[in-house]
Design a protein around this nucleic acid. Structure first.
Length: 286
DNA sequence: CTCGGCCTGCTC
DNA sequence: GAGCAGGCCGAG
């Protein structure tokens, strides 16, 4: 579900609400636990610790503690909800905790944090600083950082024998882009998703680099995209779904040329593009 | 590199 | 009942 703009939106809310709070207790539902770590280990490492800061790397959230970090990945349907006990919850917040709530953090001053994940593709575990560093080193550059340039993009695409769509979804090429923003960035850069990454010119890489950054920045500005499951920790919906140009718009007119937007499968994922603005000749691979 | 699997819930 | 969904990992 959540890609970089959604995770960044969550990060900003959590930073404001949780930084400086101490974790009094942490409970884990034992019904169908999340895989990675035992409840006991998680509790032992997190209990009593103060949250120093909330960071994001790609689609991962890191609650930095005095010792190590709580690492959260939201998978497809993960959600974090923050509330204060006794205060009324927002109207559309699910009653918490419910059967999909896997972790409950009780913090000082009545602050609560719930991790909920219907499909349970997400992760919630404690890691050391060393593990956090290793995780980060295994990922490509942050698209909004100066480390990400048209040149590094071009270089990372050479010698790769797959579509540009697949490469944008590969977190080692650029970290944090998912299915929605890959389609949106390719549309803005006027590049067909099926094209082999290694045939892109420097000019195309320059356009794609700019498109990725612009679409992510705009989406952060609108607090992400809510298609169905995404809500921020205050149960607010995103606003970017009304500004998508191709994703979810199959058959609707292209915003630029009115040609119906097409949908197909590229890199095993539903993919949306304008056949006229993003021309692609189906050629025999060489 | 591609594919299937991990899960639940929703739409057709 | 089948197919699909914002992600990621590991088998082949």
């Amino acid at each position: 579900m959540p890609e970089l703009p959604e995770v960044e939106t969550i990060r900003r809310v959590l930073e404001r609400k949780l930084a400086g709070h101490r974790i009094l207790n942490l409970t884990i539902s034992h019904e169908k636990p999340l895989r990675p770590q035992s409840a006991l280990a998680l509790q032992a490492h997190a209990r009593g610790q103060r949250i120093i800061a909330v960071e994001r790397r790609a689609k991962y959230l890191l609650l930095r503690l005095e010792e190590g970090s709580l690492l959260v990945h939201l998978g497809m349907t993960g959600q974090l909800f923050a509330m204060v006990s006794g205060k009324p919850a927002p109207a559309d917040m699910p009653g918490l905790p419910d059967k999909h709530t896997h972790v409950t953090l009780t913090l000082d001053r009545g602050q609560l944090l719930y991790f909920r994940d219907i499909r349970r593709f997400g992760h919630f575990r404690w890691i050391t600083d060393q593990e956090a560093t290793r995780l980060s080193e295994g990922l490509g550059p942050e698209p909004l950082s100066p480390q990400f340039t048209p040149g590094t993009l071009l270089k990372s695409l050479t010698r790769r024998q797959t579509s540009i769509k697949a490469l944008l979804l590969n977190q080692r090429i650029v970290a944090g882009v998912g299915n929605i923003y890959a389609d949106e960035a390719l549309f803005r850069a006027r590049i067909a998703p099926q094209i082999l990454g290694r045939v892109l010119t420097l000019e195309q890489c320059t356009r794609l680099h700019a498109a990725i950054r612009e679409v992510l920045k705009e989406a952060i500005h609108y607090r992400g995209t809510t298609l169905s499951d995404y809500y921020d920790p205050e149960s607010r919906r995103g606003g970017f779904q009304d500004r998508l140009k191709v994703y979810g718009r199959e058959g609707e007119p292209c915003v630029t040329c009115q040609t119906p937007v097409r949908k197909g499968i590229v890199a095993q994922r539903g993919t949306h593009w304008c056949p006229k603005c993003q021309p692609w000749k189906k050629s025999r691979r060489k």
